[in-house]
Design a protein around this nucleic acid. Structure first.
Lengths: 340, 340
DNA sequence: ATGAAAGCGCTAACAG
DNA sequence: CTGTTAGCGCTTTCAT
């Protein structure tokens, strides 16, 4: 590996000078600059970012902790974070915890405060708020992203999306289409992250005076397969549903498949809504009616907030940013309720 | 940030000793060990991996360069690489170039030789072999993964999958089902990465004495949308096709959609095959018949090779590893050719 | 069994 | 303008 000193020797100058021309700091004579640049070129020198980070006290990377890179939402989100980070000269370290708390801890330990200058943690069912608080106490800038309830933020810098509202929008849409017998499939445990989406749905039904029994809901995981299984279970138990509210896009695709399995035509026999609007929502057929969540905005806000935290380490009260409201996107999986 | 020295002071020992207990090196008295551990605990100390990397001359990270994290294949692959890397005590840096050569170069410069100890580059149309060679010349361990033609490897350490064979398998399957009028949709330019898959397909058709005209193929990108568009174009031009060979799973989904748009029932009216067997292949409906590629094996081999390269920097001839052969996975999108 | 000292590659003062 | 000095946080001989 080529080092600064080797370049300096070849150029007949000292390391400091090389550093200066490379960073554009200080004044360097045009002559020397040329020689240095030439030396850099012939030696194929590249600065050691670790050494630089060490002396500067901060690495040029930020970390993004995601629970499952296999869930297409996260890569999409990571893309946005990376875009924002690179614009500011940072590299993005994508850390996949695979829904394993131990692995999350390992990443937080490793990354927090040494491998990265700060970390953005994607909200997930198993996110260990206490671990994040500990990290924060150690002086590592941390922001929790995609918190679901702006009204009840954790004691942590946090960007939130009003997912309760997302649930409301989906429900209102279904109700407006005349649906009365609406099932629900929630992609988390009953006490999990998606509870607010579900709550928004339930609240809206209640307000509209529509009955809903606990037999009409299934809880599970955020995956296509779980959505399909849940839908089979739900539709077997409550066959006269005309619509199903799904708390996320991925399981919504599963519901669509279950409907097809049962010979139900969507949306004639069954309407289905998702939440998030991942790419697949418009790429698959039938295109999914869903409540779009401002992903790019959330990513941008998270990076901004992290930068603020880095610049002003001691904020008294943890900041909270809330994205624009979710937005209904009507596509091909919802329609007016048919004649009984 | 807590440092080694602070821990040492609190424990009433010297930095070297703390380092020793933490790394399990050297002999340390049970008493001191306890005090040190206690100090670490109360201070919440975490070693600075950058500093460690600097003195050890190598970081504990390896980098994976992917062209598009939005393409679900790459996250799936990244997962496997991460698994293999972590087992060896390495963190994985996922670098997304977004199909932008400039960004790839930026990542290679940054990551190669300082942020990461070595880099695995996923093969892609735009991969700049010369940039990789330059990196290698600078002494950075590099392995190119998912090379498509084992018979013609580049001058680079490389793990290859026989994608020509994948094309052969898909074609043989179709032919065995009686198909004679088979179209092709290729998810890369004619001279791009998928050319060998296509070649395998063409070779097999030729061997079987099945005619094929250039009107029966469309070249494009590796995406659902491109697959759909290509299929529309293809089926409009050559409506009597009974099957279409697609060079990757993602565009194959697009073809399925186009078939649905045209009222063609799969596989009764049209058989479709993909290549890779990404998760969506079995998660979507109809489940895709495809040629599975040993992704996990390739990931493991790539990591292994990288480790070898790290351990034995000066291999005379660049190593080449080839995965097990691809494997046909018959699902619901292929069937016997129907009566004309 | 523990401490002292040197140094990894780089940058940031401060001299000259 | 350029060189000198010091030191980032850690590991590693080599003494003690």
């Amino acid at each position: 590996m080529t080092t600064l000193v080797q370049v300096a020797q070849l150029a007949g100058v000292t390391a400091a000078t090389v550093s200066n021309v490379l960073r554009g700091r200080g004044k360097v004579g045009a002559q020397t600059r040329q020689r240095v640049l030439a030396a850099v070129e012939t030696l194929g020198y590249r600065p050691n970012l670790m050494a630089r980070a060490l002396v500067e006290g901060k690495p040029s990377t930020i970390a993004l902790i995601v629970s499952s890179i296999a869930n297409p939402f996260y890569p999409e989100f990571a893309l946005e974070v990376e875009r924002a980070a690179r614009k500011l000269g940072y590299f993005l370290l994508v850390c996949n915890t695979n829904d394993d708390p131990a692995q999350e801890r390992a990443y937080l330990d490793a990354v927090g405060g040494s491998l990265a200058q700060g970390v953005i943690v994607m909200n997930a069912d198993f996110v260990q708020i206490d671990a994040l608080l500990a990290l924060r106490r150690r002086g590592v800038p941390v922001v929790l992203c995609m918190w679901e309830r702006p009204q009840a933020p954790p004691e942590l810098p946090c960007v939130a999306v009003d997912f309760h509202q997302a649930g409301v929008l989906a429900a209102e849409h279904l109700i407006k289409l005349g649906h009365q017998r609406i099932g629900a499939i929630v992609g988390s445990e009953a006490s999990g992250n998606h509870r607010w989406r579900y709550q928004g749905f339930r609240d809206t039904l209640a307000k509209a005076g529509i009955e809903f029994h606990d037999t009409q809901v299934r809880f599970g995981h955020d995956s296509i397969d779980d959505g399909r299984n849940a839908a089979h279970s739900l539709l077997a138990a409550v066959p006269d549903l005309s619509a199903v509210f799904v708390s996320n896009d991925l399981p919504a695709f599963g519901v669509l498949q279950a409907a097809a399995d049962l010979g139900l035509e969507v949306p004639r026999d069954l309407s289905v809504t998702g939440i998030t609007d991942i790419q697949l929502a418009h790429q698959l057929r039938p295109a999914l009616t869903t409540v779009a969540v401002p992903t790019a905005e959330a990513a941008g806000l998270a990076v901004d907030m992290l930068m603020d935290l880095i610049a002003h380490p001691k904020g008294a009260v943890p900041p909270l940013k809330v994205t624009a409201a979710p937005r209904l996107v009507v596509r091909a999986t919802t329609g007016r309720v048919g004649p009984l």
